[in-house]
Design a protein around this nucleic acid. Sequence first.
DNA 1: TATTGTTATACTCTATAACTATA
DNA 2: TATAGTTATAGAGTATAACAATA
Lengths: 164, 164
Amino acid sequence: MVVPLRAASQHQSGGDAAAPPAVLADRMGFLLKHAQLRYQAIQQPALAPFDLDGRLLAVLALMATEGPALQARLSERLQVDRTTMVALVDALEHRGLVERKRDPLDRRGHQVTITKKGGNVLQQALAVTDAAERDFLDPLSRDEQHQFRALLARLAVVADRRSS
Amino acid sequence: MVVPLRAASQHQSGGDAAAPPAVLADRMGFLLKHAQLRYQAIQQPALAPFDLDGRLLAVLALMATEGPALQARLSERLQVDRTTMVALVDALEHRGLVERKRDPLDRRGHQVTITKKGGNVLQQALAVTDAAERDFLDPLSRDEQHQFRALLARLAVVADRRSS
DNA sequence: TATTGTTATACTCTATAACTATA
DNA sequence: TATAGTTATAGAGTATAACAATA
């Protein structure tokens, strides 16, 4: 084993939260932050056995569906800096989940390809992530879960229509 | 003017996102992250004129409702490390929004008090934050906004009942 | 000159460890 | 010995700038 990934964090000092301050309890900023924290608290340990975190999994999943791709294309798709993508692809390559090959047509670029091992790991990691989502949504009824997902999707990804 | 706060960030390189990759578009991790990014993109510039960010505002609001308090108590309430709270209170004090006074009864501690200026700024900043929340929720109908807020609150703050 | 990938570097955020002063 | 606050420091994470190879 190698990487601590995002090992510990969220420490500060002591105990188990107690009730949140009333002033903050209905603020969007607070709610979104804590929903994300709770999801990560579920997802991180679930992915740990694969030595992956959410970002690495995203890159891997993207490569599986959008085929071999240049790093530049990957960073564009994931809205991540080129230099950050270097580190992400490095991490996946060290784990043997992807390979870099020079593009023979344009030798400036590297085609990044998912390996067979990468495909297997991806499949298992996605299954684990599905389970994590179910755990996260567990406080809601089935109907509410679907409602929440749909509403959140509309708030997260807003078509940014500027004039026409 | 002084502090860059969290000046720029979210840069990477170029353009305006385009459609998100389909593999990620219905993943909780992706949706929660991007919802938060979108909210921050609205809230940050709204608070910038007050030289505040969300965390500083949270401390200020907490002090207004929970009265003068020790830093130790504030960090406990906000689930933030003691050393982080030092920096937060420093920032608020430099802006003249709070004051530190030694507790005469226990001279180890500082009672942190909101100033008159702090109260005024808080009031305006909260109004601006309300507007930011409305902007954020604008893609939804009135009913949907209430639904979303209620569902999110249940997912964000989960009573962690362990046995009985 | 522009572009892909890379390295070196810097900056932000936040935690741990160690120190001061009180108790 | 323990606690409140502080400082120094280190570790993630991620950006900008500069460089090599290629176009």
